[in-house]
């Protein structure tokens, strides 16, 4: 009886792990898309609104779902909270702190950090070019993420269950 209960638990846990991994693959392209939208919004604020950067980031954050919104919000508030920070430091810290909460990977983190080192310190055209470049890079990451999703999402869903079955068979 107990053996049966254990087997059921193992099967359940395995399936859940598989689903969770699959969800990460589904989540990443979605968040990349949201990130691209957020940067487009920032582009508009800078290019047409001439909005000062902290305010532009706040506005972007309010139009972006979590966990991405926190990155923008923290980057904006960091410069006032820590006196020794430049914007680049604040932006980088916000990204590193918040990254765990997202489904995104190293590549897009590098793209964002590179963007942060240029935000706010050059003229409008230059800013727009850098944001554009970041958008292009994110787009290619998104395409890759969608490929991965197609390839691995289903696989992980069944793989979790199958490994659990294997463990149960070995245990019995």
């Amino acid at each position: 009886m107990i053996k049966l209960l254990g087997a059921v638990l193992v099967l359940f846990a395995g399936t859940m792990i598989g689903f969770q991994q699959a969800a990460r693959f589904a989540e990443r392209p979605r968040q990349l898309r949201q990130l691209a939208h957020a940067l487009q919004r920032l582009e508009t604020e800078i290019g047409y609104g001439h909005t000062p950067l902290p305010e532009a980031l706040e506005r972007t954050a309010s139009a972006t779902p979590e966990p991405l919104a926190s990155i923008f919000r923290k980057a904006a508030s960091g410069v006032w909270e820590t006196e020794s920070f430049s914007f680049r430091d604040s932006w980088e810290q916000a990204i590193r702190l918040q990254w765990e909460m997202t489904a995104m990977k190293k590549n897009e983190q590098a793209v964002l950090i590179r963007l942060g080192s240029t935000l706010g310190i050059s003229d409008k055209e230059d800013q727009l070019k850098h944001i554009h470049l970041a958008l292009l890079q994110l787009k290619s990451e998104e395409d890759a993420a969608r490929d991965d999703q197609g390839r691995y999402e289903k696989m992980w869903k069944s793989l979790g269950l199958l490994i659990a079955v294997l463990v149960v068979i070995l245990m019995v």
Binding site: I46, P52, L53, F87, G120, Q127
Partner: peptide, 12 residues
Amino acid sequence: ERITNYSLYAME
């Protein structure tokens, strides 16, 4: 950054 409020682009 501080004197331009982190927004040089808005200071053309």
